[in-house]
Amino acid sequence: MSLLEFFRPQKKTSASLAKERLQIIVAERRSADDPAPSYLPQLKEDILKVIGKYVDVEPSMVDLSFEQKDDDISVLELNVKLPDEDK
């Protein structure tokens, strides 16, 4: 790391920001005993914003589900129905 990088850090990309948020959510979920995740609506909204930069999608086209399979296994499933290209 050079001295200039220390005083002028690079702007985070949307992918790295989304990765950090997901890591925080997963860590929070592991520490909480609440079976119903309260963060899913906000996570879905964030994912819609990121996908919306590249493809026009509606909220009904994104399905986000969370399943607790065991004490140490959780599954976050994301299904996105992409629109057909106009020909």
Rank of each mutant, 00 (worst) to 15 (best):
M1C: 15
S2I: 14
S2V: 14
F6S: 15
F6L: 15
F6E: 15
F7E: 14
F7R: 13
F7P: 14
R8H: 12
P9K: 11
P9Y: 12
Q10N: 12
Q10Y: 11
K11H: 13
K11E: 14
K11Q: 14
K11W: 10
K11S: 15
K12G: 14
K12I: 12
S14I: 10
S14G: 11
S16P: 14
S16E: 15
L17W: 13
L17Q: 12
A18F: 13
A18T: 10
K19C: 07
K19N: 11
K19F: 05
E20D: 13
R21D: 12
R21S: 13
R21H: 13
R21Y: 13
R21Q: 12
L22G: 10
Q23F: 04
I24D: 12
I25K: 12
I25W: 14
V26H: 01
A27E: 02
R30Q: 04
A32M: 05
A32K: 02
A32L: 06
A32W: 12
D33V: 04
D34S: 01
D34Q: 09
P35E: 02
A36G: 08
P37C: 01
P37S: 05
S38D: 07
Y39V: 02
Y39P: 11
Y39F: 07
L40Y: 03
L40W: 10
P41H: 04
Q42E: 09
Q42G: 05
L43C: 04
K44A: 03
K44M: 02
E45I: 06
E45F: 02
E45T: 00
D46V: 04
I47N: 05
I47F: 01
L48K: 06
L48H: 00
L48P: 07
K49C: 08
V50A: 00
V50L: 06
G52S: 03
G52Y: 02
K53G: 10
Y54H: 13
Y54N: 06
V55T: 05
V55F: 11
D56G: 05
V57M: 06
V57C: 05
E58A: 00
E58S: 00
E58M: 03
P59E: 05
P59K: 08
D63Q: 11
L64H: 07
L64G: 00
F66T: 01
E67H: 07
E67Q: 01
Q68P: 09
D70E: 09
D72Q: 08
S74G: 05
V75L: 10
V75D: 03
V75P: 06
L76Y: 02
L76D: 00
N79L: 07
K81W: 04
L82S: 11
L82K: 01
D84H: 06
D84I: 03
D84S: 03
E85Y: 05
E85A: 00
D86P: 01
D86Q: 00
K87D: 02
K87T: 04
